[in-house]
Amino acid sequence: MGCNQAKPIAPMDAPGATVAQQVEWKILPSSQEARKKFEADGTLGKNSDPGQLELRTLLDDPLAQPVIFKYVTEVAKAQDLFLCWMDILEFKKIPSEGFRRTTAMTIYNKYIKPDAALVIGDIEMNERERYKAELEASRENPNLISLKFFDKVQQRCFTGLYYNVYIPFKQTNEYLFLTKQLQERYNVVKLNDFEYFSKLGEGGFGFVVHCRKKSTGRHYAMKLQTKKGLLECFADDPYRADFEKQAFATCQHPFIVNLDYAFQTDSLAIMVLG
């Protein structure tokens, strides 16, 4: 089936051009991949339910973090749990033993020490004393402070956030608005918004098909790439997986194929070019 020739149009008048520039093509893992990752780094329990996985995913998203923090501060009054959880998450990224020990002391003084300003309540006194003793011992032996040093505290914070923040937050309009924002930010359209014709070509980890958007009748070339292939190809620098999308989004021109949509499924990263 052929396409009718359309007259050239001004770059920013191209359907979807603004959408394509605003969409952040973040390579989102599948729920199974996300669960495996979070269990491996100790931030999600082995038998966690789907709600806990959603909370853990939201805590990892820069768009969701300020929304959750606002709710935590204004409604749930659980700043200590949120800030402690985030500080420990950053602590786990520190490669240097010396700096890790310094940061561990800050976390202890801020959240675990009995008279700390943002003391976490659900920690037994003998556990607080153990942290103090191990931090003292680490003066001579900094490698005592491993990346998993605060795992139990972080898990307590997460449990508190789940029951005291996430469950009531999920019943609010703010939650509905946030999920809509995330959907619009990362997935403007879906695969079933199009009908498909012939394959136009294929490459190392993807292929291109001729498709038509059902709501507009407009024809496109849809490039579908496996996220596994992209991430393996750019394993040394995963952000490079986004370069092609960014190049298309910033080069809107009548004589260059336009990127009208960028979205994804659990396994595919997809660009719709027209």
Rank of each mutant, 00 (worst) to 15 (best):
224 L>P: 02
248 F>R: 05
250 T>S: 14
225 Q>L: 15
29 P>E: 06
65 Q>I: 13
107 I>Y: 02
95 P>F: 11
219 H>Y: 08
250 T>P: 08
132 K>I: 12
148 K>G: 14
261 Y>F: 15
31 S>C: 06
163 Y>Q: 11
121 G>H: 00
130 R>N: 14
234 F>V: 00
180 K>T: 14
141 N>K: 15
127 E>I: 15
132 K>H: 13
15 P>Q: 06
37 K>M: 05
149 F>V: 03
233 C>E: 12
2 G>Y: 12
35 R>L: 08
77 K>A: 02
114 P>G: 03
74 E>G: 04
29 P>Q: 06
84 C>Y: 06
126 N>H: 14
253 H>L: 01
228 K>I: 05
129 E>H: 11
87 D>P: 06
76 A>G: 00
127 E>P: 05
208 V>H: 03
225 Q>P: 09
81 L>T: 01
107 I>K: 00
80 D>I: 04
227 K>N: 12
186 Y>D: 10
164 N>M: 10
267 S>K: 12
47 N>F: 08
219 H>R: 07
83 L>G: 07
243 F>R: 10
261 Y>H: 13
97 E>V: 11
186 Y>L: 10
233 C>H: 13
56 R>Y: 02
70 K>C: 02
47 N>I: 01
171 Q>C: 07
143 N>K: 15
194 F>C: 01
191 L>V: 07
260 D>A: 14
36 K>C: 08
13 D>F: 05
93 K>W: 10
195 E>S: 15
92 K>R: 15
86 M>W: 04
144 L>R: 14
112 I>C: 03
228 K>N: 03
169 F>E: 01
158 F>C: 02
132 K>M: 05
233 C>Y: 11
195 E>R: 14
170 K>R: 07
62 P>R: 01
80 D>S: 09
35 R>I: 11
90 E>H: 12
86 M>Y: 08
38 F>H: 06
129 E>D: 13
55 L>T: 00
